[in-house]
Design a protein around this nucleic acid. Structure first.
Length: 270
DNA sequence: ATGACAACCTGTGGGC
DNA sequence: TGCCCACAGGTTGTCA
């Protein structure tokens, strides 16, 4: 679930409930062992004044007077707004308790996510060396061309590397490469400047479109945990192995690359 | 510096 | 029906 558009959707879903100036009464932790343990001082903290809410890559950041909360949803995390008296499920690991009686409840079956606290988030080790935001103008074709030169890794691995560019997960990497007509197995350094330009634009386009559709899912954010929903209909290759390519009808192929599934059309992608 | 890969967890679905 | 294995939207850390 948590690709960049889902994280953005999650952020938009919780932001009306946690505005600057609001107070977090406390954080109720039921299961502190996520990817890293939830810090004890965060579990003890009370009456935390919120200063701002933002996203960096797939991280949700809640700036407060007592530091910035760093939240990552990992592979299976989600957040929803509910009230304090609803019963927590098996994988509801913590609640951010708000002054008005609402809570933000974090659910994460695989526990690959995290909740951390830091003073200056820009300097935090998880955040300080991240690449540019894919939808920003810092991420452009001359940048991607420069960082791809002489790289032996495949182009798919390159664009999924958060130190190169944040937020491009397995789904969007596959989709953007399909739109560009490039196989995921091509070595990054072998791509022409033209293809890099097209790929850059397609990464932006596919993320942008997915955020738009995530926004549709957003409507029932408070009721459900926001399943993939509408975005799935737009997929051209991801999860479509054996099915006909929407462009040429050739069967979509699935391969395994670095322990991750890759999908492509053998006709349209070279 | 670069790249390959194991690891962190639990749930689910397919094959037998 | 039940069991076992492979696999899942992410990222870090280790080792060659």
């Amino acid at each position: 679930m948590p690709e960049l558009p889902e994280v953005e959707t999650t952020l938009r879903g919780i932001s009306p409930f946690i505005q600057p100036g609001d107070h977090i009464v406390k954080i109720d932790v039921r299961q502190p062992s996520l990817r890293w343990p939830i810090p004890e001082d965060l579990q003890r903290a009370r009456d935390i004044k919120v200063k701002g809410l933002l996203r960096r890559g797939k991280y949700i950041l809640i700036e407060t007077q007592q530091g910035t909360l760093i939240i990552h949803l990992g592979m299976s995390g989600s957040m929803r707004i509910t009230s304090r008296d609803t019963i927590a499920g098996k994988h509801d690991h913590y609640d951010i308790v708000l002054a008005d009686g609402n809570i933000i409840r974090y659910c994460d079956p695989r526990r690959f996510g995290c909740l951390l606290l830091t003073e200056k988030w820009q300097q935090h080790e998880l955040l300080c060396s991240l690449g540019p935001e894919p939808l920003s103008k810092q991420f452009d074709s001359s940048y991607l061309y420069a960082v791809s030169r002489k790289r032996q890794i495949t182009i798919k691995q390159l664009i999924m590397n958060s130190h190169i560019v944040v937020g491009v997960g397995n789904i969007y990497a596959n989709e953007a490469l399909f739109l560009t007509g490039v196989r995921p197995t091509v070595r990054a350094g072998r791509l022409s400047k033209i293809k890099i330009e097209q790929l850059t634009q397609n990464i932006k386009a596919v993320l942008d479109a997915a955020i738009q559709q995530g926004g549709t899912t957003l409507k029932d954010f408070t009721k459900s945990d926001g399943k993939p929903g509408y975005f799935k209909q737009s997929l051209q290759v991801y999860g479509r192995q054996g099915e006909p390519c929407h462009t040429c009808g050739t069967a979509i192929k699935q391969i395994k690359q670095n322990q991750r599934a890759s999908f492509y059309c053998p006709q349209c992608q070279k």
